[in-house]
Nucleic acid binder design. Structure first.
Lengths: 345, 345
DNA sequence: GTGAAAGCGCTAACAT
DNA sequence: ATGTTAGCGCTTTCAC
């Protein structure tokens, strides 16, 4: 078990020799390609097993596929993304594809680095989850390799998209709170600066959905949005700002569960009881939202279904790069828990 | 921007022609290898920029390196692992290496699949975080590609290891609780069945550290261990079991923060106040441990430092595959928060 | 249905 | 210091 074990790897030539067939034949069996008799397949399979042969992906990639799918996650800490990932890997489990994740994609520059790295590595397809890159970059990526974009509402002819209806999600929250009797319902949004992609981002859609739903409930006058970010500190700061209002809201709709965590922290500090004094709702239905001591009302996006669809579309597109692009839009559901109740008095 | 854009990728030959030099020269510049004059480098660099050339990793991998590092995470949901990952990517940020994560590695079989996939893809090095595979498999992997194992206490000549001292971590918790006046301090551990790797696993070390520390504080009689698993349900079930004791503990040391979450949930259900009626401590100092409404006393493992060391060792080993293996052992610290206090009465 | 042979885009020996 | 050439291990024509 010493380091000097530079044992030459078993190659396709070894297998061919051992099975007394051509390398072409082995290659065909490997790829389940047409042109190999059942006997041939059996013979080759046996040789492969006996020698413990595994094809070298780099060599395959030079001519054909790499059987590798890249998934870009913007933030590995966001507990919503693993759900999507489960959907992706679940769908791909019985295929020859292997999934790899590109980490550390905070910001446009990092995203570009990761997507380029995936392209350079000859990945057969790429799934971009909630990317912040410009649409031009997304299309650049998609023109180099089959691509599915998750969580961006814009349509493009070169890539497929899978989204959850954020407008509906926001209206579910507002409807729930209004139904409990709330009128002063505030929203904490993620501030988006870039005008070219603003309409495509889920955060913008949630804010829009909030506005629309408030109007629909005759609460147009009560619309109150604080712009921070989809982070815990963002929620904390946003909550502080709302508490400083002359007439603070009786309910806060945080654009993401992680934001709600910051909101809860600020309210705890301020000595407010939730939901007695004030209600709080999040978005994403992350694992910790269900956790007993927190028990956060939230919007469930069916992450696994999102991932499953993304993987399905990607495999389809790898098979036919020229088919028209597809947009899948899923619907969220509300999960009411113990952070929302009727307003005080 | 239509799909039919099968634009041939720029190759090293194009760059060589454009710069009026040999492909060897371009290759040397790419790898910062010896044997290219400054003028040559400048000329080639310019051609690369002008053509937007990017080397194809698959082709490089066939002869040389792939500049790809694989990181295997057992559970992307465990909020401790991103810290390690940050350390890894931070250390590698200024190098040519790109990190990719292998997901869905729950169990020995999945781990094998992922490690094989990484080897097949010609990755230059692999970091295995808290693997559950047999030592034989780890050494098999390490003999095929430079490998660093994080969170396993066994030494091996073929791979380097980075660990945090779990025995010390457990003793910090016991010392803290004993110092507050607790005597009936129970521990919830992750049940390990396989005898061949039991001593190497962090969970076993934490349980051992707990036992040692209890004895050191003259509390040998009070040693009380419940075996479940390092999951939230594991903590919930373990807590239920402890509450059913004739003399329930006054403090519970959960082997991981996620376990403590389940414990807190069970205590909330049982109408016990924490820390008024009973104290709870976790391990890992995950993000949500610091979260206000939870404020869990925990052990901090300095995950970023662990990752940084792992990446450093890996790069060293890639450079010299025959150097003796190295073991790095870091020390944890205790972060006391609001879930621990003096026992009642 | 099967196999020989020509590459894929790089890097590594080996000239010069 | 620079260029020439022979592969790396596969897949893919294209013969048979």
């Amino acid at each position: 078990m010493e380091p000097p074990a530079p044992q030459r790897r078993v190659t396709i030539v070894d297998v061919a020799r051992h099975a007394k067939v051509s390398t072409t034949a082995v290659s065909k069996v490997l790829r389940n390609a047409y042109g190999a008799s059942p006997e041939m397949r059996a013979k080759v399979r046996r040789a492969i097993d006996e020698l413990g042969y595994r094809p070298l992906t780099a060599a395959r990639g030079l001519r054909g596929q790499t059987y590798t799918i890249g998934v870009m996650l913007p933030d590995i800490r966001n507990p919503f993304f693993p759900e999507i990932l489960d959907g992706v890997t679940g769908r791909l489990a019985d295929t020859d594809y292997q999934v790899f994740l590109g980490p550390g994609c905070n910001g446009e520059k990092e995203e570009a680095r990761v997507t380029e790295a995936m392209i350079d590595r000859g990945m057969d397809g790429i799934i971009l989850i909630a990317p912040v890159s410009s649409r031009a970059h997304l299309e650049h990526v998609a023109s180099a390799v089959p691509t599915v974009v998750v969580g961006r509402h814009g349509h493009s002819p070169v890539y497929d998209t899978v989204t959850d209806d954020d407008v509906v999600g926001a209206s579910l929250v507002v409807g729930h709170l209004a139904g409990l009797g709330h009128r002063r319902i505030a929203h904490i949004e993620h501030h988006e600066t870039d005008p070219t992609r603003i309409a495509e981002m889920p955060n913008a859609q949630r804010a829009d959905g909030y506005r629309q739903a408030m109007r629909a409930h005759g609460l147009a006058e009560e619309i109150d949005i604080v712009s921070t970010s989809y982070t815990q500190p963002g929620g904390y700061d946003g909550a502080k700002e709302l508490l400083a209002r002359p007439h603070p809201p009786t309910a806060v709709f945080a654009g993401a569960d992680i934001v709600a965590m910051g909101v809860l922290e600020a309210f705890t500090e301020a000595g407010l009881s939730v939901p007695g004094d004030i209600s709080v709702a999040g978005y994403d239905n992350t694992t910790f939202a269900a956790f007993g001591p927190i028990s956060l009302t939230s919007v469930d996006q069916a992450g696994a279904e999102i991932g499953d669809n993304a993987a399905r579309l990607l495999v389809e597109r790898i098979a036919d790069r020229h088919r028209a692009s597809v947009q899948v839009k899923l619907s969220p559901t509300l999960v009411a828990r113990r952070t929302t109740a009727a307003p005080p008095e």
